[in-house]
Amino acid sequence: MATDITQQGLGRSRPGSADFAAMEAGPPFARRGRRGRLAPPAAADSLERGLGWFSIGLGAAAVAAPRLVGWLSGSRSPTVMRLVGARELAAGVGILTQRDRAPWLWSRVVGDTFDLAALSVAFARGDRRGRAGFALAAVAGVAALDLLAAVRLTGTRTGRSVPGLSARTDIYLERSVAVSKSPQECYRFWRSLENLPRFMESLESVRQLDERRSHWVAKGPMATRLEWTSEITADRPGEEIGWRTLEDSGAANAGSVRFETAPGGRGTIVRVTLHYSPLGGALGAGLVRLLGHDPQSRVREDLRRFKQVMETGEVPTTRGQPSGRRSVFGRVTQQWGIAQ
């Protein structure tokens, strides 16, 4: 079945990579074994960790001694303080333990906003104005740090200057699937690009413009459509197809699919590598929208469908089968494509 070499949610960063436009179609397999995460610069890392521990410290204090913390900050209700404490603890643990810290930092920003609002009300009422003012200033300071860390991690600062992908945040992902068909059969099916929408779920159509160029139309979220032009950069029958999007594209990416003979006559290992930027400004954003927050899964499922189409001629489904009454949760999972 599909295997995942990068083993992570968002792929891995590739600091100092070459300019995307100059990238060769062949993937840099020397890097295959490396594992990384979206590692921010070291200074930012210590800021985030600091905020994480601060969160835990404040959270523990608010849960353990809600009255004391409440008194210090000019708040009266121990219940509210306990809730604030629980929120802080969750954010702290999230920041310190999760690979993707950005949502947890953003949760701190949201929490700060709430606290600032509450403290402002207390301050305006003139109620224990001194302590509330002190707390307001302290929270505002922390909020600024939270916002800085969150923004920095989310990378809105970066990637605007390069039309296409930003070197620092490029992502490679690689997945493979074993298919009980010959490399030639797999290649032929894939190379007829019109076939791609049969197994790439987000694609609506692919139209060959000439020998090398093709026009792609994809379904975006909320009935939006996304179109771009790709060109073939490598074409070795029975072995490999490489592609990249053209300069004016809305979904900048480059990649390749290789068809390797599986050992023991067991068909073909179909290996896809994809190179794109998750944060690459307006251009890359289109592809990110298509791939969702978990591009690994999208590629994995597309490859799985490729295998299904090749081996069975159809994509197994339960969409449209009968069921009893579905609960709200059941209907949500239907939207995700689990229950039908």
Binding site: M1, G267, R300, E301, K307, Q308, E311, T312, P316, I338
Partner: peptide
């Protein structure tokens, strides 16, 4: 078991291990 008959496992007569018949394979994985 639902088995496609075309995958490696079906061809090995290991039908309950069919690779293609579970649309929610990722959940089981």
């Amino acid at each position: 078991p639902i088995s496609c008959g075309g995958c490696f496992f079906c061809q090995e007569s290991l039908y309950s291990l069919c690779e293609n018949s579970n649309p929610n394979a990722w959940l089981a994985e």
